[in-house]
Amino acid sequence: MDWDKFNKIFEGCELLGNKIHIKSRLHEVIQFVIENYPYDILKEIIAIHNQDGTVELVYHLYSTVDEEDLMISICVNDETDSIVDIFKSAEADEKEIFDLFGIKFKGHDNLKRLYMPENWDGHPLRKDYIQDDTRLCWNDDNDS
């Protein structure tokens, strides 16, 4: 893709290998990319809880036309834009990230627990998730 043009429109982006790290305006960036380049699949959204407390979201796009990958990443605190209106598959990914990382996606109207029980506290894949939780079977000894 045309990096110079992209950088002019969305200032403050960094290019790291085949990954573009953006600061904000996630929805606009994804919209711009799919309108101007033939990326047609959102393969997955990867979430990583960083040491500094933010959650990095990596949007992995793929084009079946020219067989190219593109990663767009953004660091968020606890809320960001949903892109369900662009890619329906994001519905599944965003739900998973909400369950496991506690990120709320604005515009996603069906955010609820996916793997964990509905009344569960905390988000297990966060690095600050409690490790001595007595609800976990390997901490049973703490009960007695």
């Binding site: 699949i41 393969k43 890619f87 598959s89």
Partner: peptide, 10 residues
């Protein structure tokens, strides 16, 4: 085809 791609079916 479009639905399949939009829903990330592979």
């Amino acid at each position: 085809k479009e639905t399949a791609l939009n829903y990330a079916i592979t």
